[in-house]
Amino acid sequence: MLAPEKNWWKPMGRMEKSWLTVAFVWCVFLTVMMPLWYFYGKQNVPTETYKTSPADYGAKVNAFVEQYTIGTDEATGFPIVAAPPGSDVYIRASTWQWYPILQLEKGQEYRLHISSMDLQHGFSLQPVNINLQVIPGYDYVATITPTSAGEFTIVCNEYCFVGHHTMVGKVFVTEEK
């Protein structure tokens, strides 16, 4: 709180120097971890994005559902859609639903498209805990490979007005064939 002496630009002590060095090395290490995982890790944040509009995206989702529907979910009445491995699969977010219900196969790769028809939403796949931001006008493509089978839930984790907590969807993953 008091003014420093006139010449305060003094060499650092031994302890400051050693802590500064260790802390700096740790910072460099934290930095390097990200590109390392980018090249060698299996879980990276998707970057593939296309500009779209709610109308265009909605049309794509409808065409996709029409082509690959294999049944109807009893609880919601939503179509269950199973596209062949390697293909583009679509999920549409809107207040307050995830549409349609996807059926995937464990160990197979899919190009998962996500976009919103209205507000911003949060794609939160549970219990594997993968979370992505969903923004209207942006078609976000995540190339995913399920490594576990069973029934998974999509929770909306971006506040999208008063019905937000009711926005819940489903994904089924079958065992490897």
């Binding site: 802590w19 910072c27 994005t49």
Partner: peptide, 30 residues
């Protein structure tokens, strides 16, 4: 985890260039 931004942009910015602001806090922490 927003659409439309590259890995490089995210990695450089999120790390404050090279965790240099974190370094600042670690200096105060000592």
């Amino acid at each position: 985890v927003d659409p439309g931004l590259s890995f490089a942009w995210k990695a450089v910015n999120t790390s404050y260039a090279m965790y240099l602001a974190v370094l600042g806090s670690m200096m105060h922490a000592f």
